[in-house]
Design a protein around this nucleic acid. Sequence first.
DNA 1: AACCTAATTTTGATATATCAAAATATAAGA
DNA 2: TCTTATATTTTGATATATCAAAATTAGGTT
Lengths: 227, 227
Amino acid sequence: MLRSSTVENYLKAIYQAQMALEDDTALVPMGQLASALGVVPGTATTMVKTLADAGLVTYEPYAGVRLTDAGNRLAALVLRRHRLVELFLVQVMGMSWAEVHEEAEHLEHAVSDRLIERIDELLGRPTVDPHGDPIPDPEGAVVQRRYQSLITCPIDTTVEVTRVIDQDAEFLHFLEEHDLKPGQAVTVTARDAAADSVSVLSGERRHVTIGTRAASKLLVQVRQRVS
Amino acid sequence: MLRSSTVENYLKAIYQAQMALEDDTALVPMGQLASALGVVPGTATTMVKTLADAGLVTYEPYAGVRLTDAGNRLAALVLRRHRLVELFLVQVMGMSWAEVHEEAEHLEHAVSDRLIERIDELLGRPTVDPHGDPIPDPEGAVVQRRYQSLITCPIDTTVEVTRVIDQDAEFLHFLEEHDLKPGQAVTVTARDAAADSVSVLSGERRHVTIGTRAASKLLVQVRQRVS
DNA sequence: AACCTAATTTTGATATATCAAAATATAAGA
DNA sequence: TCTTATATTTTGATATATCAAAATTAGGTT
């Protein structure tokens, strides 16, 4: 049974590329997978064939690759480890939101099931990590929530940032400095298609204008009323 | 610069074998190194040559291997990570003394300097791990203490278990069940060379007779008077 | 001094993961 | 349909880490 950290990284990359796809039956192109992993396309082809032989992916030459149920489960467990570790580093170790991704990238391959269970228990069985990404359960199942983004949400309505689709430390630091972290209440005050920009008011005081590329990475939910 | 976890494991194994040697100029035999790492002797020879080319060890064909200053420093830093992680898992994560070694064996290659510094700070700059093994400082320097063992310490004198030279979970569980963990006060009541045994009284109540092999793994210090 | 034994090294293979660059297939446009 | 651009696969190498088994060396014994 194939279990190197290389294999885990391939499965994780395919999983995340699939998430970005609307269609469940769509395939992830090899070129996209290769660049996500930082390898040349030929390397990805070779590795994906190995994964296909192991029953972890379905590979269609010249079309792309998709996880099987077994591959999907393993990928979700890698993400479970990654996200629990991230949350642990922030909440228990007091590390910065922006710097934990790199650390978790290594630890996700080294932590045992036993330690992960202990972390999960200590954190009170959390469902999302510091970026708002959902934490798969021990069987690899994930509850998918539906979000809007700063591009699609209503204007002049208070919404809550619930998820950030980018792990780049610089971008995360920017969000932190402008009160745009998950949990924060924000309001879109204007959108300008020509200027490719979105103006956001965060926390009632701070006002910032960001590009639509960045705005699309901030997922939000209309604030729930607490009865 | 050579930095795989395989290299780290070789350096660590040489370091620990050297510790067991009295003489500073002595060499670790290749066969011993190979069996410590669970590889065939030829594999160790090949790898040690690579380490020698990298300036991490001094290799004398047919005689053995010894760490250079650079190798010694790297090995000590691996042990620093290992031991801080072990102590963290016991003190913060509430894991059992006996089960943390295996976990640390993986994590020692994955934790960043930044996280190790955070752990060190959180634990209050500890100097020994849960087995009483010294924790090297961030430069790789170690304070060597001198110990007696249950074989060499005076009879009918209260001593404190300060270090255990064996990481086997079964052995550690045995010690735990018989109040022989580091920190515990014990008294050797008798030694029997013919029976190859040592009788120990722990904590005033428990009495147990163990073999000399096991007794030699329990290092002790005569209790310090607190003024 | 020749011999034997045990440890060590060498040699030839294997497995994994990668790249560079040539060959090939797919899909879109003329 | 033919052509062409782009993506993908194939081929041949390379680096790391390993093993099995043959060859060699060192050191003690007769």
